[in-house]
């Protein structure tokens, strides 16, 4: 699923690369040509992409945790099967994205080491806890919904392997959102207690979902360069507005209220106008002080350590069999 806050190039574009090469590169992008792994590209483009794709990949992997939390407690066998399939998809999406990042010359080991060391970013949305079953509905509906909004334009991004990974991901993502909405709908049409549970989940996930689109355009320093390179195709605020416009009527259909008293339909702009976003909260979570930052990384580290013997055994087995094959060749 999950991109957010695609804050990319650290350095300004191409300080060391020759201007005419850069110009030709930009011209290719302007013609909507795709850049492929072995093509020449400015170092800053490469680095920006590595960071963006890695961040996205990490988000998929960490994103398995809040939902995995409910697999054993899913309310029916059907829900359990669906949730397992969804979490499996997130793992798969992480794999597609790590593969795409690797085409840029970074190794998977490096990327995973960065995540486990706490030096890599992932979507801050996964640092919130999943307190009730309704949260699984809200995540599918809102978090995956926001992710889809972000990701559909990336299917047309300038870097071939990333664009192809996004096409694959977006195809699979739509089931995630629909199953989430179905959970919300079931709860909304259920008992008073179930409705209250759904309302509470919407209350807690609404603002963090809006923040998934990243800081407002006024404060997003990297947007212009990323747009020029077409590794980002719409601004944070544009995507956020689209999400609000499609999601508010869905909440109304559910009979649930969005936790924003200032939210209203603006006839002049033909958009829903939200109240101000409390960015200080996002900053806190980004800084690592969200409700679950620590827990998420600990869970990843524990999984990595617990799987070490499996990786080592598989490598030893492969080594042994390579040895046997070579022995056979020699005789």
């Amino acid at each position: 699923m999950y991109t957010q806050a695609l804050d990319s190039p650290a350095e300004s574009a191409g300080t060391s690369d020759e201007p005419e090469r850069l110009e030709r590169f930009q011209a290719r992008i302007d013609r909507d040509e795709k850049i492929e792994p072995k093509d020449w590209m400015p170092e800053a483009y490469r680095q920006a992409l590595i960071r963006q794709i890695a961040q996205h990949a990490h988000s998929e992997i960490v994103g398995m945790l809040p939902e995995g939390n409910w697999i054993t407690r899913a309310p029916s066998l059907r829900r359990k099967a669906v949730l397992i399939a969804k979490v499996q998809d997130e793992g798969g999406h992480g794999m597609y994205l790590y593969s795409a990042a690797e085409t840029l010359g970074v190794s998977r080991g490096q990327l995973i080491a960065q995540l486990l060391a706490g030096r890599a970013k992932y979507s801050s949305i996964f640092n919130y806890p999943t307190l009730s079953w309704a949260d699984i509905g809200a995540i599918g509906w809102l978090v995956d919904g926001a992710a889809i909004m972000n990701q559909i334009p990336l299917c047309r991004c300038s870097y071939g392997p990333y664009a192809r990974a996004m096409v694959r991901i977006c195809k699979e993502e739509s089931f995630h959102q629909r199953q989430g909405f179905e959970i919300m709908l079931t709860l909304a049409r259920g008992s008073d207690a179930q409705r209250a549970m759904a309302q509470d989940a919407l209350r807690r996930w609404w603002w963090p979902s809006l923040m998934m689109f990243g800081p407002s355009d006024a404060h997003s320093v990297h947007t212009a360069q990323s747009m020029r390179w077409k590794i980002k195709r719409f601004s944070n605020d544009e995507l956020r507005q689209r999400f609000i416009d499609v999601t508010v009527p869905q909440a109304e259909f559910l009979g649930l209220s969005v936790p924003d008293p200032a939210l209203h339909w603006d006839e002049a702009t033909r958009h829903y106008q939200p109240g101000p976003i409390d960015w200080s909260e996002l900053q806190t979570v980004l800084k690592g002080e969200g409700p679950c930052n620590h827990e998420r990384l600990e869970a990843r580290r524990a999984a990595h350590e617990a799987g070490r013997w499996v990786r080592e055994a598989a490598a030893a087995y492969a080594q042994k069999h390579r040895g046997l094959e070579h022995g056979a060749d020699a005789s």
Partner: peptide
């Protein structure tokens, strides 16, 4: 960090009669 497993490219035949097509890559021990 142990070394990455070998990188493989994956090709899938989507149904019989069609050619295998590159879909991505992955790491594996063998």
């Amino acid at each position: 960090m142990t070394e990455d497993w070998v990188l493989y490219e994956v090709f899938i035949r989507s149904r019989s009669g069609l050619e295998h097509k590159h879909v991505g890559s992955l790491h594996a021990a063998d």
